[in-house]
Design a binder for these strands. Sequence first.
DNA 1: TATCATTTGTTCGTATGTATC
DNA 2: CGATACATACGAACAAATGAT
Lengths: 256, 256
Amino acid sequence: MAAIDRSPIYVQLADQLAERITSGEYEPGRMLPSEARLIAEFEVSRPTVRAAIGHLRSMGLVDSQHGKGSFVRRHDAPVVTIRRAVTQRGKVFTDDSLTPSEAPAVSRTQLHGVAAELLGRADEEAIVVDQLMADTCTGVRIAHRLFIPMDTAAQVPQLAEAPDAPVSAVYAALVDAGLTLSWTETVTARAALPDERAALGGGDGDPVLITRRVTADADGRPLILEELRISAAHGQVAFRIAPEKAPAARRKAGSV
Amino acid sequence: MAAIDRSPIYVQLADQLAERITSGEYEPGRMLPSEARLIAEFEVSRPTVRAAIGHLRSMGLVDSQHGKGSFVRRHDAPVVTIRRAVTQRGKVFTDDSLTPSEAPAVSRTQLHGVAAELLGRADEEAIVVDQLMADTCTGVRIAHRLFIPMDTAAQVPQLAEAPDAPVSAVYAALVDAGLTLSWTETVTARAALPDERAALGGGDGDPVLITRRVTADADGRPLILEELRISAAHGQVAFRIAPEKAPAARRKAGSV
DNA sequence: TATCATTTGTTCGTATGTATC
DNA sequence: CGATACATACGAACAAATGAT
């Protein structure tokens, strides 16, 4: 591999291989040339070849199997679609396709970061309920986290008594308290942390999709925050969009 | 570093460092111990240390700077929030915070994959309009792609004439054609490809957030597909959730 | 069942280049 | 200029998984 370019050899090699993959020359499921063949074809050392393949792995383009080879990843469509809708009929807000796969863990925390911003309560205390869920059909795992600020818990005693109740019960408690609810949901993604990869599954380079639902009262005051995390390799999130009366004003970080 | 664990040394090292970072012992912005110090502290070789740090980089935990050191990444909140709402007032469906930063590129393609599924038109032809947009305030770049199936173009001649019109004009044309519109939007994410990292920005390990809006007519027949891609480091997507009358039925891949 | 070639995984050592301060 | 620190690249050895003989 001649150093025509000034970019590193392993990047050039990775780009060439990525080109062959995205162009379809290397079809999904097919094995890449072995390291030995790439060493011969491009006349580089093994560490260089391995660096290039490592790069392709972190881009989610290939998947290496010990003793077999590196294979072009099939980018299957996400298996699970989480439909983020709410129903108000009969005070039921259930998503029955998800079942708990572990006992919920209740703890307390000082609100900070994104959660504090979304709840509009910096440095206040909140109850946190963590629960690992699983999709009933596919077994795909989803991490669920619920933030209940202390003043919301004070306002709705049922929440303080049983914060680890099913989500539908939590919403029902809010409605029972005479509140009129509204919801805003934000979606973001980031690289998976080690423990998330272990808990949620997903291969190297698969990001984690994070969706945060803020439930507010009629005045727009945030009441609770629900957070779902799922490996983007297995799941996606779906929304039904309804036309709004007011012009859609774009919001920036900080005002969220 | 004793091999108590059976996992590779560089993974153990990466996990230990990741622990120090996520626990807050290494605060954001702070420099990691240099490679030389890590070699001394953990008594491993330089390639092992570098492999561990490379791992942290691909997880988006650290950012290495040539000649200075590796630093704990500040996970700033996304700068741009794309509010995915539609307004029907005055037939305006505009998102005026985005301005084109390049001329639109119009081409044709055979529908396949996710786009074909969402449009319910496998192997049919469609007009594709690609355009790189930028957020007016921040300059954050967003890739916009619009799919117009041929039969929709035939039904709404304005689309065939000017497929590269602003999105608001495209929606206006659909309304002018007497159609009643409804929208569903799905969000997913995946690792950034090399060209996407170049076009959209974002560091190593930052995924790309992809949101796809299907516009359908009153019968639920998909008309067009709009696709936005943004680096998850810079942007997130926000939805306003309205209660639905019917119970939320979860949909699976294949029926999307 | 056992052996062997192939292939990737891990780890070491070493040398040189280049950016920063 | 020199010291520090990361980036790139090569070579070598052994381990471990796989599949075929």
